[in-house]
Computed example of a mutant assay.
Amino acid sequence: MSQPASGSNAASAIVAGLSVVVDEHLRWLTQWHKAALFPRDNGQTGPDAAPEPSGFATWVTRVKKGSVAHQPAFDRLVQLHDQLHRMGRLTLMRAADGDLPDYGTYNAVLERFEEFIQQCRRIERALSVAGSGIDPLTGLRNRTGLADEVARELARFARTGQPFCVALCDLDKFKSVNDTYGHEAGDRVLVAASGCLTRGIRAIDEAFRMGGEEILILLKETTLAESLLVLDRLRADLAATPVQLADGQVLRVTASFGAAEAVSGLGVDALVDRADQALYAAKHGGRNRVEAWAPLPLP
């Protein structure tokens, strides 16, 4: 996840609040251990023996007022928080009735706690580097500076006539990966795909994560015909790259590409829009293919 550098102050405030949330939940876990495993020795019983930390609700309210509220990472964190405390309260209620948790129940709460803290750390790292222009998951450049980079190439093209192309890459049926295997698997696919693309382009070229599973590739000193050859090689490399999941399963993924070449008088947005139109054609042409932008035929 990423956000523009102009939101750096807001990001700093969110990270500071997140540190409080993590500290509160570490203290909560200690209280929960005592109440769940030694309810009588602890002198308290029931879910109130380990009250839910109050700082999280305040933090979420602050996040929802900011520019990053739409990020799915925050929704996932709220879900994990709700699951954690629902499971924790249920365990304490049973312990209060003399039913101490078995290993499976106890471990389930700890696993959910670990997931919650890991998600907090992911958000913390992402916001900490948001202003750096680097996507923390894939290591690609993010949207920060993208327009400036393309504008520089357009200016160079206007001066020298040196061609260049913009291409958009979109992983095919990526939503089904998240839905079927979970978001961790989706992250692994994104990391593997980004690594494949990075290895396949030259040092002078650039790759940007646009958001989600879409990646923009800036191919410098390249004609449209040359870019199509490069992109088809990248497409084949990606299709041949196995992605190993945490449970040992191996996925094969493909991607569609749309390319457009710079022409005189065309601005940044219009050039990227042409690449997007070509990507649309690749998706609707069967996926796992490369398409070049072409003007619509006259009626």
Score class of each variant (00 low, 15 high):
residue 286 G to Y: 13
residue 92 L to S: 07
residue 102 D to A: 04
residue 74 F to H: 05
residue 201 I to A: 00
residue 50 A to M: 03
residue 9 N to M: 13
residue 39 P to C: 07
residue 264 S to D: 15
residue 78 V to E: 00
residue 167 A to P: 08
residue 25 H to I: 09
residue 278 A to S: 15
residue 36 A to M: 03
residue 225 A to Y: 06
residue 238 L to S: 02
residue 60 V to E: 09
residue 224 L to D: 13
residue 26 L to I: 06
residue 133 G to A: 06
residue 161 G to Q: 08
residue 221 E to H: 10
residue 45 T to C: 00
residue 69 A to M: 03
residue 258 G to K: 13
residue 198 T to A: 13
residue 264 S to N: 14
residue 164 F to I: 15
residue 169 C to L: 12
residue 12 S to C: 10
residue 212 G to T: 03
residue 225 A to E: 14
residue 7 G to A: 10
residue 33 H to V: 12
residue 128 S to Y: 04
residue 253 V to P: 06
residue 182 G to I: 00
residue 139 G to W: 07
residue 191 V to D: 00
residue 283 K to S: 07
residue 284 H to E: 10
residue 79 Q to W: 01
residue 128 S to F: 04
residue 212 G to I: 03
residue 266 L to C: 14
residue 299 P to C: 05
residue 122 R to C: 11
residue 251 L to N: 10
residue 269 D to V: 13
residue 149 E to K: 11
residue 133 G to L: 04
residue 244 Q to T: 15
residue 109 V to G: 01
residue 207 A to L: 09
residue 290 V to C: 12
residue 108 A to G: 01
residue 204 I to V: 14
residue 164 F to N: 12
residue 79 Q to A: 05
residue 296 L to M: 09
residue 16 A to S: 14
residue 171 L to Y: 10
residue 91 T to P: 01
residue 10 A to D: 10
residue 14 I to N: 04
residue 172 D to C: 12
residue 257 F to P: 04
residue 260 A to M: 08
residue 272 V to A: 06
residue 62 R to E: 14
residue 26 L to Y: 04
residue 106 Y to P: 01
residue 71 Q to E: 08
residue 286 G to Q: 14
residue 58 T to F: 05
residue 154 L to H: 04
residue 101 P to F: 02
residue 291 E to D: 03
residue 174 F to A: 03
residue 147 A to P: 02
residue 157 F to V: 07
residue 267 G to T: 09
residue 41 D to I: 06
residue 271 L to K: 04
residue 275 A to L: 12
residue 289 R to M: 14
residue 278 A to Y: 15
residue 27 R to I: 03
residue 234 L to I: 02
residue 67 S to Y: 07
residue 266 L to N: 00
residue 212 G to F: 07
residue 293 W to P: 07
residue 85 H to S: 01
residue 207 A to M: 07
residue 71 Q to H: 08
residue 262 A to L: 11
residue 113 F to T: 01
residue 242 P to N: 14
residue 147 A to W: 05
residue 180 T to R: 13
residue 3 Q to M: 08
residue 31 Q to K: 03
residue 106 Y to A: 01
residue 214 E to T: 06
residue 170 D to L: 12
residue 246 A to M: 12
residue 11 A to V: 05
residue 61 T to H: 15
residue 2 S to D: 09
residue 192 A to F: 02
residue 233 R to N: 12
residue 143 R to V: 06
residue 234 L to P: 01
residue 82 D to H: 06
residue 74 F to G: 02
residue 174 F to R: 03
residue 185 A to F: 04
residue 7 G to I: 01
residue 200 G to K: 01
residue 142 N to K: 05
residue 162 Q to P: 00
residue 192 A to V: 08
residue 136 P to S: 09
residue 299 P to D: 11
residue 93 M to C: 00
